[in-house]
Design a protein around this nucleic acid. Structure first.
Length: 552
DNA sequence: TCTGGGGTCCTAGGACCC
DNA sequence: TCTGGGGTCCTAGGACCC
């Protein structure tokens, strides 16, 4: 606990939704919900306008739609969010070398390590300047908390929201925290709160009064002791820059539960490949392969297998995942599948043992065969060249009308609003979904684009050569002529009424699962056989879990 | 029309070793 | 031959966070 509030916590306000509003002028000041669009989607972020209607993060999107039918429901555009996040993180690094990102929109900064004078006036000035810089550079707002400890800085930024700054003066924390609910403390979720409630503990002050021994009894060693310290305002955790990832995983929830075992196997294979792609992109390899299965009744289980050495070989991960799947009964229907890798290392098996060129060549040959088999499997699993899915919110470019975004689609049509971050609200046009003039586009920068911004392919060419009779282009402050009466009298149905293009990039439901998914080719991977046999294997199929359709 | 996707950390039991 | 004790690895599950 420092004697000056030199730990800064930054939290961008309604980040995803705010970025969408900055990108899409017609949505400014209106309720916007970013998240899963499909029948099983959940809300990632709701704009403040949508929160008024009770829409919250983690709420099922279906429920959000009931509460706020007129909001724009948009699929997330992580490419954009990452770009903006990079800009923000860059600003933070100008303050100190010690920056600890918590997510795309949140980070701690150790101002003391950045040489900022350890007094309230100085850190406050730094915080305010940061907020101005963020607004100037990204067009978005962020809230800043300053305190002598991480936990308190985070609580401060929460209190500062939206678009504010709060300093917690060292020495005042116990008084401040005392009356707050235990849920304020980091690490206290629904389960812990319920345990504490049953013990008559509701506030932070009551948590402190309970004493460490009691908390440890209730919650276990680590959690109890940690919580007790937090309740006293004690938090010595240092700000740590860039930690290496410890696991990499991918998962998909299906719009309709999977029952066909062949299809389940094909999906696990796809997930294994996606997981390895990410693993390789990160330049890592992993030793333990994990699969995750969520059943129709939401019960969830994992199975894992530790290999003899780390691998980034797609075939090896696929085969391990397939073996693990064999341990699981999926007859009731599968809602979600996941594949992950843990025990990450920075090297691969080949680096260590494959100096021999012959071995290397064999490896590559096997790899080629796998890819071919893969391709065949994909064909067989009828995944034709990816039917174009116009998800609401995504960027598009039209040959004539330029850059815009998908407002909705269905019954063979797609509705696009043509506007850019720097334009006025744009107008809406509808096309056949297979209109060759319409292509997916790239996110446009929120700030600094614009007519003179010399963008290529934004479809907002400043000069001549804009055949559109009434393009909402630059210099045309045109407030959406097609929508008279400013506040969208009939807010276009955002999101899609059409079930077949809902969803999150998961395959369309109702595929006949015609997968004659080619059996994986010969493994030939002696270096990565399982090291141990799962102790639980014997008790697996048929018994307990299989029939366990109880609970809930 | 209930409940995403990507992570982290902790606990607990069994195996295995000394 | 009434049975220690610690340490590490592996597996499974759960809570929590954004």
């Amino acid at each position: 606990m420092r004697r000056a509030p030199t730990i800064l916590h930054l939290d961008m306000d309604a980040f995803f939704a705010a970025a969408e509003q900055a990108a899409k002028p017609s949505l400014r000041g209106k309720p916007v919900v970013v998240g899963g669009i499909g029948p099983r989607g959940v809300v990632s972020t709701a704009s403040y306008e949508a929160r008024v209607f009770g829409v919250r993060s983690a709420m099922p999107t279906a429920q959000a739609r009931r509460r706020c039918p007129n909001a724009a429901y948009l699929t997330p555009r992580f490419t954009l969010y990452r770009q903006v996040s990079d800009q923000v993180m860059e600003l933070l690094h100008e303050l100190s070398p010690l920056v600890e990102p918590l997510s795309l929109d949140e980070a701690f900064v150790d101002l003391e390590a950045g040489g900022v004078e350890p007094d309230t006036a100085a850190v406050r000035a730094v915080g305010e300047r940061l907020r101005r810089d963020i607004a100037r550079k990204t067009g978005l707002t962020g809230s800043v908390g300053l305190a002598g400890a991480k936990m308190l800085a985070k609580i401060a930024s929460e209190q500062a929201k939206p678009d504010g700054l709060v300093v917690i003066e060292p020495g005042t924390e116990r008084e401040l925290l005392g009356p707050m609910t235990v849920r304020t403390l980091p690490g206290v979720g629904p389960a812990t709160a319920e345990t504490l409630r049953r013990a008559g503990i509701h506030t932070v002050a009551e948590t402190a009064e309970a004493g460490e021994a009691e908390l440890v009894r209730l919650l276990g060693r680590a959690h109890g002791a940690g919580l007790y310290a937090m309740a006293l305002g004690r938090d010595e955790r240092p700000v740590v820059a860039e930690r290496d990832a410890k696991s990499i995983s991918v998962e998909d929830t299906f719009e309709v539960d999977l029952t066909d075992r062949t299809r389940v196997r094909a999906e696990v294979t796809r997930l294994a490949d996606r997981c390895v792609q990410r693993l390789r992109a990160a330049g890592r390899s992993g030793r333990t392969v994990v699969i995750k299965v969520r059943n129709y009744d939401f019960s969830t289980l994992t199975r894992s297998e530790t290999l003899r050495g780390p691998t980034d070989d797609p075939g090896v991960v696929r085969e391990a995942a397939a073996r693990l799947l064999d341990l699981v009964d999926t007859t009731g229907g599968v809602r979600l599948l996941g594949v992950g890798v843990t025990g990450l290392a920075d090297f691969t098996q080949e680096d260590l043992f494959a100096q021999l060129a012959t071995e290397k060549a064999a490896e590559e040959e096997a790899e080629r065969e796998r890819r071919a088999a893969d391709e065949a499997a994909r064909m067989a699993a009828d995944e034709p060249e990816r039917p174009r899915r116009w998800l609401p919110g995504l960027d598009v470019v039209h040959d004539e009308h330029g850059a815009g975004w998908v407002q909705g689609s269905g019954v063979g049509r797609v509705t696009v609003r043509f506007e850019q971050p720097w334009s006025g609200p744009g107008r809406v046009r509808t096309f056949p979904v297979d209109d060759p003039a319409l292509r997916p586009g790239e996110p446009l920068p929120l700030v600094g684009g614009g007519p003179e911004g010399d963008r290529k392919d934004t479809g907002a060419p400043p000069g001549p050569g804009t055949p559109d009779p009434a393009p909402p282009g630059p210099g045309t402050p045109d407030p959406a002529p097609s929508v008279p009466g400013t506040p969208d009298p009939a807010p276009p149905v955002l999101g899609s009424p059409d079930p077949d293009l809902s969803g999150t990039g998961t395959p369309a439901p109702g595929l006949p699962g015609a997968g004659t998914s080619a059996p994986a080719p010969q493994s030939s991977a002696p270096a990565t056989l399982p090291n141990s046999v799962s102790a639980g294997a014997a008790s697996e199929p048929g018994t307990g879990s299989g029939a366990g359709m109880s609970r809930r």
